[in-house]
């Protein structure tokens, strides 16, 4: 896979040019970049506001508090800036892990067939039938889920089955292609066939799946926080939402800003990731890469 990525990234300028062919996708890409910048660099400039200010509860956006204030009069903007990092890390870890599992084993199952295939498919079916929320409930009771990497790993470890099935069927059809047969005749080896012949032809698909896995993980973790299954400390868009919910923010007209801001942040992030895939898939199109 390495060379595929290298091929795509070897010239940053060219890659950006190709990505800009799709205007919407490129806008999504820029939005993702801005969000990343805000979430990871922003906290150095906008410290989290932890001071309770009774005189400033539930303010609408104004010059001092760009996004208004919460039930304790704290600045929402600072919470949004500081609350993105964890959400994104969990999304990336979960998305990457489930994509990696799905692509590796899905391709292997499709290509190797026979017993390898049946074993992988059975395991997939078992994992697919596990009810996720109860399992997470149990897990949350047993282990501390407040380590964000750990949460990402668990969400990733549960999120791959449907993607694996899709990858497997793609691999099954690619396996029939003449160039794969030629690679077999040339004795290039199973690893070569999987990672150089089959996977590069699924890149578009993998990118989209990766994005969807990330958005899925974002929803899952927000839901977990919202239901109080994950004892989150600090600030996080999910925690904000949860707090606003617990405080009954939806019942007060004044508090609309408090509950809407984390929702907006989550939606914008999701939207940006999904639209960005439109540009990313172009990067792996050899027609565009060869400068046509």
């Amino acid at each position: 896979m390495g060379s595929v990525f290298l091929g795509a990234v070897h010239s940053l300028g060219a890659t950006l040019r190709i990505m800009s062919y799709n205007k919407v996708g490129f806008a999504g890409f820029i939005a993702v970049m801005l969000i990343l910048f805000m979430a990871f660099i922003g906290p150095f400039f906008v410290p989290l506001d932890t001071v309770t200010k009774v005189d400033q509860i539930y303010q609408p956006p104004n010059a001092e508090h760009w996004l208004g204030t919460d039930h304790q009069g704290r600045d929402i903007f600072s919470q949004i800036v500081n609350g993105g990092k964890d959400v994104i890390i969990v999304a990336v870890v979960a998305g990457a892990l489930s994509t990696l599992i799905a692509v590796t084993f899905g391709t292997l199952a499709g290509f190797a067939g026979g017993r390898t295939d049946s074993v992988i498919v059975s395991i997939t079916d078992i994992v697919l039938t596990i009810p996720q929320l109860p399992l997470l409930l149990v897990l949350a009771a047993l282990i501390k889920l407040n380590n964000i990497f750990f949460l990402g790993v668990i969400l990733g470890a549960l999120g791959w089955p449907s993607l694996l099935r899709a990858v497997r069927s793609q691999a099954l059809s690619l396996k029939q292609r003449d160039f794969v047969e030629a690679a077999r005749a040339l004795d290039l080896g199973t690893m070569h066939i999987i990672f150089r012949e089959i996977v590069p032809n699924m890149m578009t698909y993998i990118i989209i799946s990766f994005a969807l896995a990330m958005t899925g993980a974002i929803y899952a973790q927000v839901a977990l926080v919202l239901f109080g299954l994950v004892p989150f400390s600090g600030s996080n868009w999910g925690v904000m939402l949860s707090l606003a919910w617990v405080r009954g923010a939806i019942y007060f007209k004044d508090s609309i800003w408090y509950i809407m801001m984390p929702v907006a942040a989550i939606v914008i992030l999701q939207l940006s990731i999904v639209t960005m895939t439109r540009s990313l898939e172009l990067v792996f199109n050899p027609r565009l890469r060869s400068g046509e």
Partner: peptide
């Protein structure tokens, strides 16, 4: 396996669209 090779019918399906000619020939 190395002594016997196959050439397929469809020139559009027999080459991997994501590889350059260089990659296809130097790898084996």
């Amino acid at each position: 396996r190395h002594s016997v090779q196959i050439i397929h019918q469809d020139p559009y399906a027999s080459l991997n669209p994501t590889q350059t000619v260089r990659q296809m020939i130097t790898r084996p």
